[in-house]
């Protein structure tokens, strides 16, 4: 347990600088975005006021300033996409960087007097924590940014929106920020299960190299099949036999089977088949 925590902390440290850069980039780009957009909006408002229009008329023509102006722009989603892409790449890099690079750190890692699965769990945990960290901080950033917008745009022209309305106004944010805990667990549970499966795929490749890629893809395919098998059954031979709650329970079970399979195979590969 102690070694697992040490390794997790160590894995976090290895990506931390880049991670802070990602956080900073998100905050800076989105802040610049909201300042720029609210100023542009106020620019038009002031122009129209000078022409002698009333605030009511301007609101009718120009519309009130909504936070979704920012959330639908690339200045907002750009950094999110960069963060998602970086973490997706890092899911692979977190393993491969130990094999490649100037010094092969993997020798050291595999010679630690601790179960090799701790490496697996530590790497997985750091990915999860980094994802959840970004997801949480983005929420705070939205609040900060909407406060900035309120400083620039007077209340008369501001569309009042709470956090949930902001999130609801934007499609992919709803996947990232479901309104109920259970949906949150479902969305992120599936995501983390996928990380486990990808990790196992990587270990297949690291164990059997070229042939391992094939095994990895095959494993991912079987995992997907097992996971969605209740749905497949439901829409084919059983024709809607299961009630939604039953289907949910079954998919929790198949999800756990996939995770267990991934852990078991990874453990086997790390102890019996892996190569430095």
């Amino acid at each position: 347990m102690k070694n697992y925590l040490k390794l997790t902390n160590f894995e976090l440290s290895r990506f931390f600088k880049l991670y802070v850069v990602l956080i900073g980039l998100t905050l800076v780009m989105q802040t610049v975005g909201i300042i720029w957009m609210s100023n542009t909006y106020m620019g038009s408002v002031e122009g129209l006021l000078l022409e002698g229009n009333t605030a009511e008329l301007i609101k009718m023509n120009l519309g009130t300033f909504s936070f979704s102006t920012l959330t639908t722009s690339l200045l907002f989603s750009g950094p999110i996409i960069i963060c998602i892409a970086s973490l997706l790449i890092y899911v692979f890099l977190i393993w491969y960087r130990d094999w490649f690079g100037k010094n092969t750190f993997v020798y050291r890692l595999f010679m630690l007097p601790t179960a090799r699965m701790n490496l697996f769990f530590a790497k997985a945990t750091s990915i999860f924590l980094m994802v959840l960290g970004l997801v949480s901080l983005q929420l705070v950033f939205i609040l900060i940014e909407s406060q900035i917008a309120k400083l620039i745009v007077p209340t008369t022209y501001m569309e009042s929106q709470n956090l949930n309305q902001i999130i609801n106004g934007f499609d992919y944010m709803r996947v990232l920020y479901p309104t109920t805990l259970i949906e949150f667990l479902i969305n992120y549970g599936i995501g983390f299960m996928a990380v486990f499966v990808i990790f196992t795929g990587i270990l297949f490749e690291r164990s059997f190299r070229l042939k391992g890629i094939l095994f990895g893809i095959l494993f991912a395919g079987i995992s997907l099949f097992v996971f969605i098998s209740p749905i497949l059954l439901q829409v084919t031979i059983l024709e809607g036999f299961f009630y939604p709650v039953e289907l949910f329970i079954l998919m929790v079970i198949t999800g756990l089977i996939v995770i267990a399979g991934s852990v078991w195979i990874s453990n086997y590969l790390l102890n019996k088949k892996i190569r430095v």
Partner: peptide
């Protein structure tokens, strides 16, 4: 002790 150092550069 491999032929190269096994720590991060």
């Amino acid at each position: 002790i491999p032929d190269a150092i096994t720590m991060l550069p």
